[in-house]
Deep mutational scan, measured.
Amino acid sequence: TQSIHIEKSDTAADTYGFSLSSVEEDGIRRLYVNSVKETGLASKKGLKAGDEILEINNRAADALNSSMLKDFLSQPSLGLLVRT
């Protein structure tokens, strides 16, 4: 696993530069990185398409609903625990 911390203040970007997809496997919801913008903040921090997001801001990914995800992604900083 890899811990990634991203700050939007690093650039004038209003997004982190990646998209997520939610997949249900064996009754457990998993979050995967769908795509990463080549010039985006997430790419600079090493996030890659296909990575599994285990935690966002110290909250287990399978416990997050879509409104919580939207809220986290609109925050000025983001902490991710990722399995590559």
Rank of each mutant, 00 (worst) to 15 (best):
D14L: 05
I56A: 02
A49Q: 11
V82Y: 04
Q2H: 15
L64H: 00
K48Q: 09
D71N: 14
S3C: 12
S21I: 11
I6M: 15
S35I: 04
A13W: 03
G46D: 04
K8P: 03
A12F: 12
N58H: 13
K44P: 05
R29N: 06
Q2C: 09
G79K: 15
I4D: 01
I4H: 01
T15C: 11
H5M: 06
I56G: 02
L78H: 04
S3Q: 11
Y16K: 00
P76G: 07
E52P: 00
P76Q: 12
E52G: 03
D71C: 11
I28M: 11
E25W: 02
D10R: 08
S66L: 06
L47K: 03
L81Q: 10
T1G: 05
P76D: 15
V36N: 00
D10T: 07
A12L: 10
G17Q: 00
Y32A: 02
S43K: 08
L80Y: 00
K70P: 05
K37P: 00
E25T: 12
M68N: 08
L64F: 08
S74W: 07
G50Q: 03
H5R: 07
A61C: 08
G27M: 01
R59L: 14
V36G: 04
A60K: 14
I6C: 06
Q2P: 00
S22R: 10
L78P: 03
V82L: 03
D26L: 09
N65E: 12
E38C: 06
L41C: 09
L54D: 01
K44F: 04
G79W: 12
V33Q: 05
G40E: 01
G79A: 13
K48V: 07
F72C: 09
A12E: 14
L80S: 04
I56L: 06
A61E: 03
G17P: 05
L80A: 04
N58T: 10
D71E: 14
E38G: 09
E24Y: 12
G46C: 03
L20W: 12
A63R: 13
E24G: 04
V36S: 03
F72M: 12
E24H: 09
L78S: 05
S19F: 06
T39R: 12
L31C: 06
Q75G: 15
L69I: 12
E7K: 11
I6A: 02
I53Y: 02
S43Y: 15
E7A: 12
T15M: 07
S21F: 11
L81N: 09
L41D: 05
D14G: 08
K45N: 03
V33T: 02
S3P: 06
S3W: 15
T1W: 07
N34D: 13
E52Q: 09
Y32R: 05
D51T: 06
V33I: 10
L41H: 07
S19G: 12
Q2Y: 15
G79C: 13
S19C: 09
K44W: 04
L73T: 04
D26C: 10
T15V: 07
H5C: 08
D26W: 04
L41I: 10
M68C: 12
G40F: 09
N34F: 03
A61P: 14
L80M: 13
D71K: 13
T39P: 10
I56Q: 00
S21N: 11
T15W: 01
S19W: 05
S66G: 12
N57T: 00
I28K: 13
N58S: 09
R83L: 01
K48L: 04
E52T: 00
K48F: 00
V36M: 02
A63H: 10
Q75T: 08
L81F: 03
R29T: 13
S67L: 11
E55V: 04
K37G: 09
S43I: 06
S67I: 15
K8E: 01
G27S: 04
